[in-house]
Write a protein that binds this DNA or RNA. Structure first.
Length: 505
RNA sequence: GGGCGCGUAGCUCAAUGGUAGAGCAGUGGCCUUUUAAGCCAUUGGUUCAGGGUUCGAGCCCCUGCGCGCUCACCA
């Protein structure tokens, strides 16, 4: 491994320490408190305790700031709870200790220090250190970053900002950019809140196959892999849908899964090849009830994770309190495009109408695809406030139940926030004969687009044949929800290790 | 996959086609309550890679690699 000058200097320090009998990588640490615990402990003592009481603590953390001043040294250490200052004074640690702290320790090293809590002249709660030792020496220096605290706000000067380095070396990014850690705390809290909400409604969380012999439940190209011994082709799942509805048939009448989906498609600010999805299915519910569940669930997440239902996203202030706006798809398109899709029951007719208005489209597309293009180009960007867009064309919704009395439309909705699609839900198609017909239609209408076609799933049809109760289903991109909650403009910022091209080292 | 932009010290950034610099980090020194500590001195470069034009290339041209934005794709 090639080493930089800075690294060579630190490697020499390691050698020197070893020669002096100091282990730069001891096996254990014995902290008595975390950084914030120690600070709170001291504050508590100041309020109610005896001010003469000495509170002894042993803390462990990473050195993030180092200010030697002659015969004293100030060092800030950090753990995941926050930062605390260590104060080293020759009077307490002796000449040898002073030499140690100044010569052996660098920014980025892990240190354990024991001493008593006190306030410095400037009022910062600190540890007056009596003894300390190396916990782990860092060879590679962390990207330089200095933090200035102004009115409680941490201003970082010249930190690590290059996005490629940040994603490829997420460990360095996390180590120096506390805001990044915060995003993943919100992410964890979001998933936890979703689980809590559904568990409280008596949903059962399950795990279904990721490696599937037949993929389905969405129109996407799958990743293909191979089972060596079985000599069988397998697909990484593109959705959970078909398995979860089998469970509804089996009597698990409230069921959900949170997990990874894989789609072999383009990467963009809102697409990653693998992403986290929440899907839920609720028997005896229809899509209206799922709308209510959705808005209540997201309000619950906001309350528990952010403590507010008002979020900032791309300069918009958005309130996620129920009820969300309900907008019929047909009406929304009339308002934004001037086209009434009900007057164009065929693809040819709709294409002509779009052509007349100079709207872009892919010639020869199915009617549903044309409608989808209109939504994406003209309607979706206008849906800033939380909105359920409902009643979708049948031919782009092969797993959704038809609307009574309207054979071209299904009971489906998508939820939009800040102009971004967040979730997709419908009254599930539970008529096995209709479902078979849909698979056949898909095969015919999308014949040319082989890779997007729904493969016929005979076993799924058999499950339907056993009888599935009326059911509402719902799917949501968890990454996109986290983007909204953390005001991040790209999915990569809410993934710890986003997909990047391989690079030759 | 197409278009546009970017790639310089560990980090953040400069540099009309003419000796590659700064701040921070590092190293040496001073400094017993600092907090972007301060002061003095100082080290550090395959300018993403390869080719070309030129007396001379970080800069201009070509190819490749990577990243970003965008379009396409993505029920």
């Amino acid at each position: 491994m090639e080493r930089t000058e800075l690294e060579k200097i630190r490697l020499e320090k390691i050698e020197r320490m070893r020669a002096e009998g100091i282990d730069p990588y001891p096996t254990t640490a014995h902290p008595t408190h975390r950084a914030m615990e120690a600070i709170h402990l001291f504050e508590e003592m100041e309020k109610t305790g005896d001010p003469e009481e000495k509170i002894e603590v042993t803390l462990a953390g990473r050195i993030r700031a180092n200010r030697p001043m002659g015969k004293i040294v100030f060092i800030h250490i950090e753990d995941s709870t926050g930062r605390i200052q260590l104060f080293f004074r020759v009077n307490n640690i002796g000449q040898d200790g002073l030499k140690r702290i100044k010569e052996d320790f660098d920014l980025g090293d892990f240190i354990e220090a024991t001493g008593t809590l006190f306030r410095t002249k400037t009022g910062e709660i600190s540890v007056l250190v009596d003894s300390f030792r190396m916990l782990a020496k860092a060879v590679t220096p962390l990207p330089a970053a200095k933090d200035e605290v102004v009115d409680g706000q941490v201003i970082r000067h010249a930190g690590l900002t290059d996005s490629e380095t940040r994603y490829r070396q997420r460990y360095a990014d996390l180590a120096v950019n506390p805001d990044v850690r915060k995003i993943f705390q919100v992410r964890a809290g979001t998933v936890r809140a979703l689980r809590e909400y559904l568990d409280n409604l008596d949903f059962l969380e399950v795990e279904t196959p990721i490696l599937q012999p037949i993929y389905g439940g969405a129109a996407a190209r799958p990743f293909v892999t191979q089972h060596n011994q079985l000599k069988q082709e397998l697909y990484l799942r593109i959705s959970f849908e078909l398995y979860l509805k089998r469970l509804i048939v089996g009597g698990i009448d409230r069921v959900y899964e949170i997990g990874r989906d894989f789609r072999n498609e383009g990467v963009s600010y809102k697409h990653n090849p693998e992403f986290t999805q929440l899907e839920l299915y609720m028997a005896y519910a229809d899509y209206h009830q799922i709308m209510e569940l959705t808005e209540n669930m997201l309000a619950y997440v906001c309350d528990n994770v952010l403590g507010t239902r008002t979020i900032q996203f791309r300069g918009n202030t958005i309130n996620l309190s129920p009820p969300w706006k309900r907008l019929e798809l047909r009406q929304g398109l009339i308002e934004t495009t001037g086209i009434d899709i009900n007057q164009h029951p065929t693809a040819d007719s709709l294409e002509a109408a779009m052509k007349a208005k100079n709207y872009p489209f892919k010639p020869g597309s199915a009617r549903g695809k044309l409608i989808d293009a209109l939504i994406g180009d003209y309607l979706e960007p206008t849906l800033l406030e939380p909105t359920f867009l409902y009643d979708y064309p049948r031919d782009i919704s092969p797993l959704a139940k038809s609307k009574p009395g309207d054979p071209t439309t299904v009971e489906r909705f998508e939820g939009f926030v800040a102009g971004m699609e967040l979730c997709n839900a419908f009254t599930e198609l539970n008529d096995p004969l209709d479902q078979e017909q849909r698979f056949i239609e898909m095969g015919r209408d999308y014949e040319s687009e082989d890779e997007e076609r729904h493969p016929m799933d005979e076993d799924y049809l058999r499950a339907m044949s056993y009888g599935m109760p009326p059911t509402g289903g719902f799917g949501m991109g968890v990454d996109r929800l986290v983007m909204l909650l953390t005001n991040q403009q790209t999915i990569r910022e809410v993934l710890l290790f986003p997909h990047l091209r391989k690079v030759e080292e």
